[in-house]
Design a protein around this nucleic acid. Sequence first.
DNA 1: GTTTGTGAACCGTTTCACAGCA
DNA 2: TGCTGTGAAACGGTTCACAAAC
Lengths: 216, 216
Amino acid sequence: MPGRTRVPRPTVDRLSLYLRELERLETQDRGTVSSRQLGTAAGAAEAQVRKDLGIIGHAGQAGIGYSVPLLAEAIRQVIGVHRQWRAALVGAGNVGRALAAYRRFREEGFEIVAVFDEDEAVVGRTVAGMEVLPMSDLAGTVKRESVGIGIIAVPPDSAQQVADALVDAGVQGILNFAPRRLRVADRVATVDVDFRSALERLVLEISQRKASPARR
Amino acid sequence: MPGRTRVPRPTVDRLSLYLRELERLETQDRGTVSSRQLGTAAGAAEAQVRKDLGIIGHAGQAGIGYSVPLLAEAIRQVIGVHRQWRAALVGAGNVGRALAAYRRFREEGFEIVAVFDEDEAVVGRTVAGMEVLPMSDLAGTVKRESVGIGIIAVPPDSAQQVADALVDAGVQGILNFAPRRLRVADRVATVDVDFRSALERLVLEISQRKASPARR
DNA sequence: GTTTGTGAACCGTTTCACAGCA
DNA sequence: TGCTGTGAAACGGTTCACAAAC
């Protein structure tokens, strides 16, 4: 059973990036990679890569490197994408429709199995081949379809109440696209994807870059 | 001239969140906030809030707190959203169209002024009221329209070449929605928004949450 | 020669704790 | 009493450096 030790957040983020590089190498039938190459792809130091892989308990071979397929599988196991995750999307606006149409998710182990909206006028329409359902169907669908993840793509003012509904329905995690910090029970994990914060980070970095010479 | 001291990345992220709360309070005509309240909204400790505001050189009043409008303005100044930013969007697929349609950007100081696509079949179509332009028009448009930010919403395989084109055209920063690490000149800032990494982070947190009791 | 695994030093950020001001 | 500002301590993650394995 994996998940022995706690994995630091920065390490998790890098594991995602290593996995992308490994999958690229898999298509090229490369048998091994060095920590240096993985580090270059992920923008991390090579010692960092070795530390990260040590944390998840994966060993390489001195002088050779790491086995591409074995390491890829090990990372998938640790992250948990070796199994398929089923998600319910709430919000059929711009962001919601784009997510529903994003076919790539499926290959990556995620599947949106139902779409909901609070707006009665939107309920009944078709989004990416799925009928938009009313919020009253949420709890039933989550149970029936074994939904583990809720995706929030509604305006900020209704984000919290949607989160409450998802938690009540029994999801294990929430991916939140609304620019609002959610308050949820401890047993539920949340991750925010916030365009606005990303843009603000970018703009501030631009300003700082102009002020002082960049490093690296 | 603002931007005296360097602002740590984690602080930048929290400043975004403080600003959201401040804007909410502004609509309610609240005159002051305590570090405790800002911290609660942003999920940070109160001492952390005071440290952050100290870093940007903003002082509160002991026993009272911080002035809502003054602090909001100070944060906007530091981040750089007190002025309007003009952006060029590359990629008119699902993600690109959703971004183009995302009206909220405008209120937040960002404006997409042009849309480009590499695919000849897409060029000429209309997206959010804008005609999709060919990549050959990129450099000219960036100069003519004073575009500071490029937004990449293309498949991963073409992300790097789009980045190169944006850098050559003279943008100062790139917001990257493609799941690929970009390599750009030092003078250009980049920020990644990666759905897949976000989902993987979520899934791993779900696993860890099941394994051990959560804190907080 | 190449590349791993890891203790030790290092560094930046967070938390603590408390003096000082309203 | 309520709340800020800030040194000092604690923490967690990163980088260094090198012995060991191939």
